[in-house]
Design a protein around this nucleic acid. Structure first.
Length: 289
RNA sequence: CGCAACGUCUAUCACGCUU
């Protein structure tokens, strides 16, 4: 069962949804009972492919087999609803979880472990954020406060991203300033990305410095966001300098990094350097692309 | 029993899909 759990997780992560389903099928044939871990992966696969009716069938199977659903599975379910434009339904699941956690759902037995957690709220907040439903987001934050669900770094990142994407940069910065949880590399890359798009380079510089003093390590995503800003300005020197800095700091360049660099070189008419990048990609095992 | 890890959320370019 553990082997299948690992397999299904890997398939889900790499977008091979049919293989997740095939693995579940394989387990049934072999008579290996599926657990919440397997069902969570299955729900993730169905949610990402938009197969809502098949997902409902899986939920029915769990009920039929008498397998109680745990919080992580419900969170995955909420994610699936959110991805498929059913935020209302996601909210309903979240409320059911809460009611069951306090024993307020009638004949259904109480289960405190079903209490909605920061993941639950982050998922719904993200869906609301992508739809720019700021009032509903505020209401959810109030609910979190009442129910003593902590605003973790992940939750704050979702809030910051929602505001920043909508161009509400100062609101986004205000959340970062007031958050109790420590900002992480995602917090900084979200802000830096959108501040750069708004040409607020002074704020970017401040954040980059703050990040260093907070000992938050840059990663590939973060550097790619910076790199793209250089590309948009046509700043080949800065892009090159960043690429070198990444190498020195041991930050892996990925396909995105190279796409940005290629475009930067080509637009600057430096096709020889662009071609050299191809060799470098091969050395890093990115040549197939 | 305790502790830890693990399955669920959030950030980057392009392409493609949908509009």
């Amino acid at each position: 069962a553990y082997t299948f759990s690992l397999l299904m997780k890997a398939y889900l992560k790499s977008g091979q949804f049919d293989k997740v389903k095939a693995a579940a099928h394989d387990m049934k044939i072999r008579g290996i009972p599926l657990t919440n871990h397997h069902y969570t992966a299955l729900i993730g696969a169905y949610g990402r492919q938009g197969s809502m009716s098949e997902m409902q069938q899986v939920l029915g199977t769990m009920d039929f087999d008498g397998i109680p659903k745990d919080r992580t599975l419900y969170n995955a379910l909420i994610y699936a609803y959110c991805r498929n434009n059913a935020v209302e339904e996601a909210m309903r699941v979240k409320d059911d979880m809460y009611n069951r956690s306090i024993g307020a759902s009638g004949a259904v037995p109480m289960d405190p472990s079903l209490r909605p957690d920061p993941f639950t709220y982050a998922t719904i907040l993200d869906a609301l954020g992508r739809r720019e439903k700021f009032d509903e987001m505020a209401a959810l934050r109030t609910e979190m406060l009442e129910r003593e669900v902590p605003e973790t770094t992940g939750v704050c990142n979702v809030l910051i991203d929602a505001h920043a994407r909508a161009g509400r940069l100062d609101a986004a910065l205000a959340i970062k300033t007031s958050m109790n949880a420590p900002p992480d590399v995602i917090t900084y890359s979200t802000l830096v990305l959108h501040l750069n798009r708004a040409s607020r380079s002074d704020d970017v510089a401040l954040l980059v410095a703050e990040m260093a003093s907070n000992q938050v390590r840059e990663n590939t995503y973060f550097c790619n966001a910076l790199m793209d800003a250089h590309r948009k300005k046509g700043d080949v020197e800065q892009a090159q300098a960043l690429k070198d800095r990444m190498k020195v700091s041991g930050i892996r360049a990925d396909l995105v990094t190279f796409n940005i660099l290629l475009d930067t070189y080509v637009k600057a008419g430096r096709s020889i350097e662009a071609l050299e990048l191809r060799d470098e990609m091969r050395e890093l095992g990115l040549g197939e692309n």
